[in-house]
């Protein structure tokens, strides 16, 4: 598989830092994340529950909850900093050039509005469509995401749909206006493998047809293997490893990444055998250790790990593979 060449990134996030107000003062949740997405590129974002994936993406479209603020960094999209845009400029981008699929369909879908009306809204606002045309397009979108009987289902309320159908309605809304960038936060957690495959094919097709770029947050490493060009692994609010997808699976390097891959249940496992999991829990915002954030759980930790934070550095022979780990970096040096 050859990844397309990306000259100028469509989205370039640098040093993004997000803080939360707590009783003991501000605490850093997202700690200087760097993330680029090229035109037509699909980037997978994985990481431990609670490591800041959703807040990172919400900050890009400026939908952070109260008490949580961006403290630093830039997020340049198509030449303009999303974090500096005015409210009205942002409204033009959100749901138009940037499509968004939220993690929690029940809270982001309006429970008292028919799904058809919720699908038509962005089409009428961003695309100036007439109501009847928007409805036609909405039915088409529901069909694309594999909802049977879309002509009838368009009039359903969210609670009348199954969990996976609601999720697919969210995907349809995210894709409604042919976005240049789709940000999807755990969009397929409720979907069975056949429908998942259908959604993956749909996204691939739009990527080819429209040159759409995609950020796909997920914990499903098997799904990522067949969809994305590149993977960024997050831990405690920072990127700890970033590599082309084939490279990451062939040579997972950061101890956290290795732990993740080792936790995947295999189809050949014995029933009820214990699964390997990474011991311990990730540090909470405001209680992060001084050195490497993974040090308290890391089997390879050395004294330096508890003192200093490792930087994200490239492999000599594969510059697109970067890892933030002292031990891995030393081994790279020794091997070179």
């Amino acid at each position: 598989m050859t990844a397309p060449a990306y000259n100028k990134p469509l989205l370039d996030v640098r040093g993004l830092t997000i803080e939360i107000e707590t009783r003991r003062g501000p605490a850093v949740i997202v700690d200087g994340i760097n993330l680029t997405v090229g035109k037509g590129e699909t980037v997978g974002v994985v990481g431990e529950s609670g490591c800041g994936k959703s807040l990172t993406m919400l900050s890009l479209v400026r939908l952070l909850p109260n008490k949580i603020k961006v403290r630093g960094g830039t997020a340049v999209f198509d030449g303009r900093d999303l974090l500096q845009m005015s409210k009205s400029e942002l409204r033009q981008v959100r749901g138009g050039k940037i499509g968004f699929v939220f993690q929690d369909p029940m809270t982001s879908l309006n429970p008292v509005m028919r799904i058809g009306d919720q699908l038509c809204e962005p089409l009428i606002y961003h695309r100036d469509m007439k109501k009847a045309d928007a409805r036609k397009r909405a039915i088409e979108l529901l069909k694309l995401v594999g909802i049977p009987g879309p002509e009838q289902r368009i009039d359903a309320y969210p609670h009348e749909l199954s969990g996976g159908m609601r999720q697919r309605v969210m995907i349809a809304i995210g894709l409604a206006c042919d976005p240049e960038l789709l940000i999807a936060d755990e969009p397929t957690t409720a979907l069975d493998v056949t429908i998942q495959a259908q959604i993956v094919d749909l996204v691939k097709e739009l990527r080819r047809k429209l040159g759409m770029s995609v950020v796909w947050i997920t914990h499903d490493l098997a799904l990522i293997a067949g969809l994305v060009d590149r993977v960024a692994v997050l831990y405690a609010g920072t990127v700890v490893e970033d590599a082309p997808v084939g490279e990451l699976f062939k040579r997972p390097t950061h101890p956290y990444t290795r732990g993740l891959l080792a936790s995947i249940p295999k189809l050949s496992d014995e029933r009820a055998s214990r699964l390997s999991s990474i011991g311990g829990t990730p540090p909470e915002p405001g209680r992060r250790p001084k050195g490497c954030p993974f040090a308290p759980r890391c089997g390879l930790a050395e004294p330096i790990c508890h003192e200093h934070v490792p930087a994200l550095l490239s492999f000599a022979e594969e510059p697109r593979h970067r890892v933030a780990c002292f031990v891995a970096q030393r081994q790279m040096m020794e091997a070179a």
């Binding site: 009987g149 289902r153 098997a222 067949g226 891959l261």
Partner: peptide
């Protein structure tokens, strides 16, 4: 259709895609 955590396998795999109309539980 079960995907595997292996990019090379995933790029080349052949799933048995079900064709035909997906019926609606309304009918």
């Amino acid at each position: 259709a079960v995907p595997e955590a292996d990019p090379e396998l995933e790029q080349t795999r052949r799933r048995q895609i079900l064709t035909g109309d997906v019926p609606s539980p309304l009918a």
